[in-house]
Nucleic acid binder design. Structure first.
Lengths: 219, 219
DNA sequence: TCATGCATCATTGTATACATTAATACATTG
DNA sequence: CAATGTATTAATGTATACAATGATGCATGA
């Protein structure tokens, strides 16, 4: 894919994003440019670039002393599900209308891997493939605007989804729903694809809501 | 609001964003860090930060020689309207449920200004207030996730909206629609607010579609 | 004339030094 | 003892020097 050697700034960005999403850096924790640059053995310059990008994405926010890791609250997560409920069906519809045969092959491959890991009850790899499935749909929907937007939203709720997919029962359901969506895409059946995607998001939200105790609005 | 003096990086970012949105820097044009730093009489460091943020936002993309100004195509614009059709009603509904009296006062003020400039047929200030109205709704919807997302989408189609609002007939309609939305907010009538906002976006899209010749898909 | 190789230059990537700012703690003074 | 001023320090902001890379143009030779 990218033959260009990644810059240190990209490297730092990836490291920090990973650390934040995996919660090794906890919400509220302060990061200073100097501390990160020493930890990763680079100068402050690439660290600054990474900080700025993370701030723009909403993962970090400036504060008097260093930059704070921003929490994606349960409330933010529910908002994101509301947005996904209204837009992910559209992305899937467009994907059905526009996906290439090669794109379909990519999607099928990730589904088969997901099914394999589901049978092995391997949560880490299940989520990896689950994420990948959605990213592929977004990539093949033919709209960078919508695709990039949904990809970013997906990232932000990764930790909530991780807990959810870890449930073996839900993992099996999710894999079956993905395959149904794939089949609609392969038939170029836009209506079915949209409907199935909407249902899929609804189910995912219900499942997460149940785990998170969504009765309480923690705003 | 912000008592902190803006950094040069913020200044450069604002300058470049303005230049791109106003099309003083045209799509496809290459900008180099050195050229911009000399033009604005600052070092490359703040320029680099601004570049990175603009790249993250999708206004610039890296290329072999400098960074290219990215065009928001008519196609992107139509995609953005599709997204707005599905989400802006939600934001307005939430605003009706959550806006404070002070927020309502802010919104009313911008509407009155918009009406004033409409009566004066002053397109620049009309759009300024039109933008401001929408940003206020997004700010008061109580969801940073949804609000920031819609604000960014709005920005990206600014130039298309500019051409549209310049039409005096549409400007009057838009002002009336804004007032109707405001009144629904003031009554805390979430259902009406959502419906009116949806109608407003639909009308705006139709009007822009007519101007742009949306029959042709220029992808 | 055309291809090849080399020098040059433009541009970005990285490190580092210095400037600035704001918070903190401590001492001095009334 | 309280208030105020000041030195210290920790952090970011900015400029600049240098490195690395890849494009460009030109000269040379077949």
């Amino acid at each position: 894919m990218k033959n260009r050697r990644v810059s240190l700034a990209d490297y730092v960005y990836a490291k920090l994003e990973e650390a934040i999403l995996s919660e090794r850096y906890q919400p509220g924790q302060a990061l200073t440019e100097l501390a990160v640059s020493q930890e990763l053995k680079v100068s402050r310059t690439p660290v600054r670039e990474a900080f700025r990008r993370l701030q723009q994405e909403g993962y970090l926010k400036e504060s008097v002393k260093g930059s704070l890791v921003v929490e994606t609250t349960a409330r933010d997560m529910m908002d994101i599900y509301e947005i996904r409920l209204r837009t992910e069906g559209l992305a899937t519809r467009w994907a059905a209308e526009r996906v290439t045969d090669q794109g379909l092959a990519e999607i099928l491959e990730t589904i088969e891997l997901q099914e394999f890991y589901t049978s092995k009850e391997d949560p880490t790899h299940i989520q990896e493939q689950d994420d990948h499935f959605h990213r592929l749909i977004f990539k093949h929907c033919g709209s960078p605007v919508l695709g990039d937007m949904l990809t970013a939203l997906h990232r932000r709720i990764q930790r909530y989804r991780r807990d959810s997919v870890a449930s073996q029962a839900r993992a099996g359901e999710a894999a079956r729903e993905h395959r149904a969506i794939y089949e609609a895409l392969a038939r170029r059946d836009a209506g079915a694809a949209e409907k199935l995607a909407l249902e899929h998001v609804k189910k995912a939200r219900e499942h997460i809501g149940a785990e998170e105790g969504h009765g309480i609005d923690p705003r």
